[in-house]
């Protein structure tokens, strides 16, 4: 307990950065991943191709490599300067949205054809059909795998510690330099992550319960 209580500001600061990193990357991945999924089910072949290309490239690239790209290679392009934190957000979002895309797309495939057909018969356009009829049902159908993707994002965020972002994954290193017990330090970091994941699991359960009738 000493390791935790003696270094509480360090732990709180680390986890605050983790939560912030996670929250921003999660929103960005959900939005961008859903747009990618819409591309992948679009009737326009070029858009479909773009979506498929993105998923194929990004999903098959190790996350560390994506980080290396945005922290070390991207600055050479001299477009917009990214701080380490922003670079980490971008790397995590780019990577996770490929997975979100596939989860959303599998959800879209579970929605019966008749739903979109009824919407077309009422005069809704493609965007309205996706936005009002298909996507809401698709998201409801994939709450568990979507939450798994977000949990993976939360844990993946610790890679940012290797790229000068002082999130929870960096706590051990600081404590090691202070001569603290590293085993205890790591256990407390793990406990922190377990608590955060439990929150996400509770959110998932609440959503599943709420949506059980309406699908």
């Amino acid at each position: 307990m000493g390791v935790l209580t003696d270094n509480l500001p360090l732990f709180l600061g680390g986890f605050r950065t983790t939560v912030l990193l996670f929250a921003v990357a999660a929103v960005a991945s959900l939005v961008f991943g859903t747009i990618l999924a819409m591309l992948r089910v679009s009737p326009v072949p070029i858009l479909r191709g773009l979506g498929t290309l993105y998923v194929t490239v990004v999903r098959n690239t190790p996350l560390t490599l994506v980080f290396l790209f945005f922290i070390f290679a991207y600055p050479l392009l001299e477009i917009v300067k990214l701080s380490y934190f922003t670079g980490a957000v971008v790397a995590l979002s780019v990577y996770t949205s490929a997975f979100v895309c596939e989860v959303v797309r599998s959800g879209i495939n579970t929605v019966p054809v008749g739903q979109a057909e009824a919407a077309r018969a009422l005069g809704l356009n493609f965007g309205q059909i996706l936005g009002s009829v298909v996507l809401p049902q698709a998201i409801r159908a994939v709450a568990p795998p979507m939450m798994s993707t977000l949990i993976a994002l939360l844990k993946n965020s610790t890679i940012a510690a290797g790229f000068s972002v002082a999130e929870a994954g960096a706590i051990r290193q600081v404590l090691s330099e202070k001569g603290e017990n590293q085993l205890l330090a790591l256990i407390w970091v793990a406990v922190g992550f377990i608590l955060l994941v439990m929150v996400l699991t509770l959110v998932q359960r609440a959503l599943e319960k709420r949506w059980s009738r309406a699908r």
Binding site: P112, G114, Q115, E117, L122, G123, Q137
Partner: peptide
């Protein structure tokens, strides 16, 4: 289509 009503065999009410 907005002016032509359609009723399907499997109802196709929006489930959500």
């Amino acid at each position: 289509r907005a002016e032509v009503g359609m009723v399907f065999q499997s109802f196709n009410l929006f489930a959500h």
